[in-house]
Design a protein around this nucleic acid. Sequence first.
DNA 1: TAAAAAAGTTAGTCATGACTAACAAAGCAA
DNA 2: TTGCTTTGTTAGTCATGACTAACTTTTTTA
Lengths: 227, 227
Amino acid sequence: MTNKANLNNLTKSEEDYLKALFQLLIEDNSEKVGNNQLAEYLKVSPASTNNMIKKLKTKNYVVSEKYGKLELTDEGRAIAVRLIRKHRLWETFLYNYLNFSWDEVHEVAEQLEHIKSYKLIDELDRFMDFPEKDPHGELIPNAKGEYKVIPKITLSSLVEGDVCKLVAVNDGSVNFLRFVSEIGLALSSEIKVLEVREFDKSIRIQFNDTVETVTRKFADNVFVKVV
Amino acid sequence: MTNKANLNNLTKSEEDYLKALFQLLIEDNSEKVGNNQLAEYLKVSPASTNNMIKKLKTKNYVVSEKYGKLELTDEGRAIAVRLIRKHRLWETFLYNYLNFSWDEVHEVAEQLEHIKSYKLIDELDRFMDFPEKDPHGELIPNAKGEYKVIPKITLSSLVEGDVCKLVAVNDGSVNFLRFVSEIGLALSSEIKVLEVREFDKSIRIQFNDTVETVTRKFADNVFVKVV
DNA sequence: TAAAAAAGTTAGTCATGACTAACAAAGCAA
DNA sequence: TTGCTTTGTTAGTCATGACTAACTTTTTTA
Ligand SMILES: [Mn+2]
Ligand SMILES: [Mn+2]
Ligand SMILES: [Mn+2]
Ligand SMILES: [Mn+2]
């Protein structure tokens, strides 16, 4: 059993590296995650990640062979899931109780997720009556550390004529999130794909009587479920 | 005018030093605060404080002559007051909404006070409907940075026969706070001083039909108003 | 399959914020 | 006023987590 002492003892940096690794491995479902990929994701140099990975290996949170791919141990994974739980609970709190908008919650949650207190997060969960999803549509891991992914594909993977429902958005970019709201899209919006343009992969979509053309990059960050 | 850019840019350490200096200078009303006193308060070495003070002086938050006493600039003071505002608002939130007890709030608030977001703290304030006092009885500075102290003296300064009301407690020690609750004291308790023992300065007090003998050290941390 | 490109590693440096040990200045007391 | 004690400062070290530059290994491609 992973024991209570683990969560503490970790620096903010160590936590951020483990979370990033989890996001690349599990959320992006990558076949292989390498040192440089992690570096790019975290916007640090490959030397920095190499160094931190070394440390996380001695602490038994990460496993890898020299020049080989990176993997999380069960313990490393558990820490990452707890961070994601904290992050998403805080985002939900900011959004539902403190008048934060879609695009404002992520940055502050990035800080709040590192506050060390079991009671704080479990009480926050209770206070909000155990919410299932965060403001971007993602599932919040429960107190037992169970992590589930909502079934979804990217809008960019659809073809002409497909009809889908927006179930989640990538919350990494403030500008992207603002733009999503601006054009009138929100969680649960029903979207119809009118046309996929071959030469630049831009997509013409329709939702609530609005027709918009969005880029491939935009569509990559919108997660949907075909209806 | 102190401008918005200030609050950010500061490390957790820098913030903690400024807050500590404020607490020694203003809250403890010390005539003179020296380097070693600050070191002892923060439980670091005099070399560490000397080093940090040097940095805070170049950043114009602290003023002092070599071998002279430490003082805060208006800007340094403003940063400290904002930290105290954040600390007390978070303590109030934890206590009133998340089932934290008197003695649990301080430690977590020590972390939460360093979260950087103007919106977060002002919205938290609004969410709680602009509370006046924190769970230990201290006044919460408002968004304009106005800092006020509640009129109070220590229980230990009273003499036989005095009757007072408990208005605040020192929140630094978990054991102390737990003991205060255990014997049945709370904010607003009316206390009568039955006897002050000369040889060890212990005090016999009465409150809600209870009679207790408390030590000088205990009485130093209980703040009262004579009625 | 050999050269080139990409990925990963190592060495050395820097800033931050701790520390100890040694030293200097102030403040007090005899 | 002279020493003794307290207070403050400086120098040098360490851990953490960044960085660049140089090097090595692996993978790709011609
Ligand atoms: Mn987020
Ligand atoms: Mn983070
Ligand atoms: Mn407190
Ligand atoms: Mn603090």
